[in-house]
């Protein structure tokens, strides 16, 4: 991928500055509110260097909430493809994990992993902000282990 990816400094920097972009694929907004709670003063994930970015071009982590519907499928793929490498995906809430109660709806594709690989699953309906932060920490651990190989 990038020849410098194995440098210690870069690995250190990546682990400490993961910026997320949030995309709702048509969920009920429950998970979105919990994600917002994780970003706002009470839980404040900026402690770990996590910032919410508006543009997919600036982000490292795609945080998806909601079941993927036929309507949002193409948009979600486009957002994913616009992100620069290396990129990671975190599926927040049971809908994004598997499609949950909507798995066999006529207009639902299913979980996010039907479209592209997902790094961390955070189940729950909705997951608590603590669970979301735990998901982020798991992803950071995974990022470190990945580049050690």
């Amino acid at each position: 991928m990038i020849p410098t990816a194995r440098l210690g400094l870069l690995r250190w920097a990546r682990r400490r500055s993961p910026w997320i972009i949030h995309f709702n694929t048509g969920g009920c907004n429950g998970c979105d509110i919990e994600l917002l709670a994780a970003l706002t003063p009470k839980y404040d994930v900026e402690r770990f260097g996590i910032l919410l970015k508006g543009s997919p071009r600036h982000a490292d982590i795609l945080a998806v909430t909601g079941p993927v519907t036929n309507q949002t499928r193409d948009r979600l793929l486009r957002i994913y493809e616009q992100m620069p490498e290396p990129k990671y995906v975190i599926a927040i809430g049971t809908c994004a994990v598997s499609g949950a109660p909507f798995w066999d709806c006529y207009n639902v594709v299913g979980g996010v992993d039907k479209l592209f690989p997902v790094d961390v699953y955070v189940p729950g309906c909705p997951p608590r902000p603590e669970a979301i932060i735990q998901g982020f920490v798991k992803l950071l651990e995974k990022m470190e282990a990945e580049e050690d190989e």
């Binding site: 990038i2 410098t4 920097a13 400490r16 500055s17 900026e46 402690r47 260097g49 290396p86």
Partner: peptide, 23 residues
């Protein structure tokens, strides 16, 4: 920022290095 360096003082530097290594 809290955990990057002492009191997060290295946070802007970490952001800069990370962005240099991206696609």
């Amino acid at each position: 920022p809290t955990y990057t360096g002492s009191g997060g003082i290295l946070q802007p530097f970490a952001d800069f290095i990370k962005l240099l290594g991206k696609e």
